[in-house]
Amino acid sequence: MFGFSLRPRKASASTAKERLQILLAHERSGGTRPDCLPQLQRDILEVIRRHMQIGDEAIDIRMERGDELSSLEINIEFPGKLGMN
């Protein structure tokens, strides 16, 4: 009874530890090298431009880091009818 009533909800400290573990695993592995993503963006734009004309603003990169896996979401807006192909 006392164990239950005296303990606050889930301790925030364990959340802090989990968040740090995920983040630091990425930082230590060099996943945040300064030029990795800008270079990736340039490369993607270059490849797409071999096939169609798109502007510099047409690309949108989002990332979500997780403990098991991370996802990189790349959205490219095509002008007009090209998107129908």
């Binding site: 968040r19 995920i22 983040l23 993503l37 990169i61 989002r62 990332m63």
Partner: peptide, 9 residues
């Protein structure tokens, strides 16, 4: 922190 892609710099 898990959503940082590009930054100020």
């Amino acid at each position: 922190e898990r959503r940082v892609v590009f930054d100020f710099i």
